[in-house]
């Protein structure tokens, strides 16, 4: 059993200024997950008549991208390649103080406590992260040859669960890794080619319009990403955007 101190961001509404509150988290089993630890603390808060700590979660197995939380300054905690819901309390030591804050970015307004509105990311997808025409159901394997390298890279990019940790970890709240993963995923595949230029231009423009910051190539995003999406996709998006911009402005 662990006895911990939690410093938790509490904020009643998006207009509220919010502040860090301190909670004792006593007798937490080491085999509990991080979110179960919060459930235990919340049950105690409810029993004593308080308002529970609000946080986002859904699958609790690292695939949906709902859970967030910046733990001791690092989105999804300092454990590599996992989401908040996959952390176990055995990673913490008796007596630890844990700082729990929302995923912060100007483009992610706080809804309540640790819940932020990440719909700016949906609008980036809506700006071009799709293929316009219906391509039918999955084609027979090997009927469209795709090189192994492209298939692997597209698959790696497609692993992005849209959690927003890259943005929360970035010193500039830049959404480049998320956007690059989406651009790269479709841009590697034959079905994505006809709209490749249009897609990168509109997605990057939407990203800028949402008020995300600019990339300074510090790669905090890659280090925080639970799916370990590579910043190689950002380099590729830089190339794609440049060539699409030149074509748009000077050729057609």
């Amino acid at each position: 059993m662990l006895n911990l101190t939690l410093k938790v961001w509490r904020q009643k509404t998006s207009q509220d200024t919010g502040s860090m509150e301190t909670y004792d988290a006593k007798n937490i089993p080491e085999e509990a997950s991080f979110l179960e630890m919060l459930d235990i603390v919340n049950t105690r808060i409810i029993m004593s008549g308080g308002e529970p700590i609000h946080f986002d979660h859904d699958c609790r197995e690292g695939i949906c991208g709902s859970c967030s939380l910046t733990i001791n300054g690092v989105p999804h905690s300092k454990e590599k390649g996992i989401t908040t819901c996959q952390i176990h309390m055995r990673k913490f030591k008796e007596g630890d103080t844990i700082w729990i804050e929302p995923f912060r970015a100007r483009a992610f307004p706080v809804v309540r406590d640790l819940i932020v509105d990440r719909s700016a990311m949906d609008r980036i997808i809506a700006a071009g992260g799709y293929i316009d025409v219906r391509t039918g159901s999955a084609v027979d394997a090997n009927s469209i040859p795709i090189s192994k390298m492209d298939a692997d890279s597209a698959f790696d990019a497609a692993a992005c669960i849209g959690c927003g940790a890259c943005i929360a970890a970035c010193k500039n709240s830049s959404a480049m890794l998320f956007t690059a993963a989406k651009v790269s995923h479709l841009g590697h595949l034959p079905q994505g080619q006809p709209e490749r230029d249009k897609r990168v231009l509109s997605m990057v423009r939407q990203m800028d319009a949402e008020g995300f910051g600019n990339c300074t190539n510090q790669y905090e995003c890659e280090a925080a990403c639970p799916k370990e999406i590579s910043v190689d996709h950002i380099a590729r998006m830089n190339r794609d955007f440049t060539s699409a911009l030149i074509k748009e402005q000077l050729i057609s």
Partner: peptide
Amino acid sequence: SLTRANRAASPKYQHEAVIQATKSSRIM
């Protein structure tokens, strides 16, 4: 212009942490 936009885009954490960004990259 980029630095100003970046500051406006990124609110501060109460508990700041750096995962692996270098000092040089942070004082550009």
